[in-house]
């Protein structure tokens, strides 16, 4: 089955060119929030899809301004479609909020999806030069082990010593990995709010998405 993905805002016309141009299209999956105007646009897309015999499915994005939430929802959908053996022809990133659109671009790079945007005035589809970058494979197994441990214990930020104890590795080894990861900007050493003499290791929420820690 051939499917397309698309972010949808208030204008159905930002998505319809992709519905019309994709050969053998059988399913369109649309990411949109609950705003009445977005639902109006969805109804317009639905009416076109009905006439063309294309199944339309909506994935609700409760907070269209939360980039990470939108990206998680999109990746889950991409993986689910692939598990079912569906071919994702393209991801149209033109509609929705800017955070939804940015999330879609990120997922296209992470999952290696073809992406297009639709010109605001001409409604011409324009493919984007994106290729797959597998971010989860850019770190060594030892670095991943350290990060995974920090992620699992993120509710209680730990010192380097505590991390070394937790994963059963020598302090110097763990300190080395943490220095390298800090140098890459993947984690941060910050003062503990409760005790400013302690330096604890913190990570960003997006690490889960990038490292596939979920």
């Amino acid at each position: 089955m051939v499917a397309i993905l698309g972010t949808l805002g208030f204008r159905a016309r930002s998505l319809l060119p992709t519905v019309e141009s994709t050969p053998s299209l059988e399913r369109a999956v649309v990411f949109c929030n609950d705003h009445p105007r977005a639902l109006e646009a969805l109804a317009e897309v639905d009416s076109v899809c009905t006439v063309m015999g294309i199944e339309l499915r909506r994935v609700a994005i409760p907070d269209a301004f939360d980039l990470l939430q939108a990206a998680r929802a999109m990746r889950t959908e991409v993986r689910a479609l692939r598990r079912k053996g569906e071919e994702i022809a393209v991801f149209n990133i033109a509609g929705g909020t800017k955070m939804m659109s940015a999330a879609a671009l990120l997922i296209c790079a992470m999952e290696g999806l073809n992406s297009v945007y639709v010109h605001d005035e001409t409604y011409q589809e324009i493919p984007l030069p994106l290729l797959r970058v597998d971010y989860s494979n850019l770190l060594t197994p030892a670095q991943k082990e350290v990060l995974a441990f920090i992620w699992q214990n993120r509710s209680r930020p730990m010192t380097q010593m505590e991390i070394a104890k937790g994963i059963g590795k020598h302090k110097a080894t763990v300190n080395h990995h943490i220095q390298v990861l800090e140098g890459k900007g993947i984690l941060h050493l910050t003062e503990d709010a409760a005790d400013r003499r302690r330096k604890v290791v913190t990570v960003d929420d997006a690490l889960e998405l990038m490292m596939e820690l979920d």
Partner: peptide, 20 residues
Amino acid sequence: CYETKACRFPLLAARGVEEA
């Protein structure tokens, strides 16, 4: 981005599409 809360995507700095 700082739309609703601060959100950083650190691993993106590791590699770009040009290198892919």
